Simulated scan of single mutants.
Amino acid sequence: MNRQSPDTLRNSLAQALDDGPFSVALRLAIQASGLSLDRLQRRLDGRGISVSRTTLSYWQSGRTQPERPESVRAVRLLEDVLDVPEGALTGLLGPPRPRGRWSAHPAAQAPRPDRTWARPEGVLRVLAQVGAAPEHLAHLLQRRRSVQERLDAHRQVRTLTMQMVVESRRPQVRRALIVHHFHMAGVRGPVIEDARGWRAGRVRSDHETGFEVHEMILDRPLAMGERAVVEYTLAYPPGHLEPHSRHRVEPGTRELSVEVTFDRAALPARCRSFFQPSIAHPKVTAEDLWIGSCTAALIVFDPEPGLHGVDWEWE
């Protein structure tokens, strides 16, 4: 559910209608209208356009997008029903997506630091320290990412284990660059333990902004399109009081899972998943997550490009 205030929701909608993507703009327009998907489907049906509730759900989640002529006509009608300017939603529809969820070689696009991090100058500085630029972050596509994060009884992050299926986007890729941002000024960053499929290389930091880059040397060079399974654990020293677990997803990622495990003596009052098309957009809360005995989990298939994560509240 979305917990933004009405003013924040209107501002988020206006920005999404300008910048996209389509799924976020549609989701925010539906939320601003106050209509459920069932009521929205009935209104469209009453105007002679048949669109299932499932299809509407897929459109607003980014799982599919309107492509056929009758679907585009439905989006034009949605603009009227949801009271957004004519052409605001249809103008965000890009070209049809390639069929099949595992396209051979998705077009490589360098991540934009200004869309992913609040202090992009820090990212540029740490990358420069290892002779890299933002486009080097796109040399390996993360087809699948599984994250396990553990907090202790003092609410501090202690370990983060990352397992990925990566695919080479260039011939003879020999290294990967992992960028992290730490919120606690003056606290030492984590160290890499239990690496598998690669080994730790250089680590460079930008103390002004809290960014750190870890260079990982692959066990073997990967040819174009070749895949490998890699894993590592970040072991944190005391003092890391992170407010959330947030992860950048690029086009071509098939699956993202984030599990956050809390100490039984310090369970949060609430956990929620969230999504941001970019760092400039406010968080859109997707759903409350069940904590169970001590773990909250977010699992997304074919995740929409942007920032996905889990945040928590203690009181």
Rank of each mutant, 00 (worst) to 15 (best):
Met224Glu: 13
Trp59Pro: 04
Pro98Cys: 00
Arg47His: 15
Gly94His: 03
His308Lys: 11
His281Ala: 10
Ser103Glu: 14
Ile178Phe: 15
Glu212Ile: 02
Ala110Trp: 07
Gln109Tyr: 03
Phe182Tyr: 14
Val213Glu: 05
Arg150Trp: 07
Glu250Tyr: 04
Leu78Gln: 09
Val24Thr: 15
Ile192His: 13
Gly20Lys: 07
Met184Gln: 15
Arg125Trp: 02
Val166Cys: 06
Leu44Tyr: 10
Gly292Tyr: 10
Leu93Ser: 10
Trp198Ala: 06
Ser257Met: 02
Ile30His: 09
Val157Lys: 07
Gly189Asp: 04
Trp59Gln: 05
Ser52Tyr: 14
Gln60Tyr: 13
Ile279Asp: 01
Gln163Tyr: 11
Leu222Asn: 14
Gly210Val: 05
Leu222Ala: 11
Phe211Trp: 08
Gln156Ser: 05
Gly252Cys: 13
Asp7Leu: 01
Val310His: 07
His281Lys: 06
Glu86Lys: 14
Gly131Pro: 07
Val166Trp: 10
Gln156Ile: 02
Asp83Trp: 08
His244Trp: 11
Arg47Asn: 06
His154Met: 01
Ala266Lys: 07
Val213Gln: 02
Asp219His: 04
Pro221Met: 07
Thr64Phe: 05
Glu212Val: 08
Arg188Thr: 05
Ala280Lys: 12
Pro98Leu: 00
Glu304Asp: 13
Cys294Val: 01
Val147Gln: 02
Leu137Gln: 11
Phe275Lys: 09
Pro171Leu: 10
Pro106Lys: 00
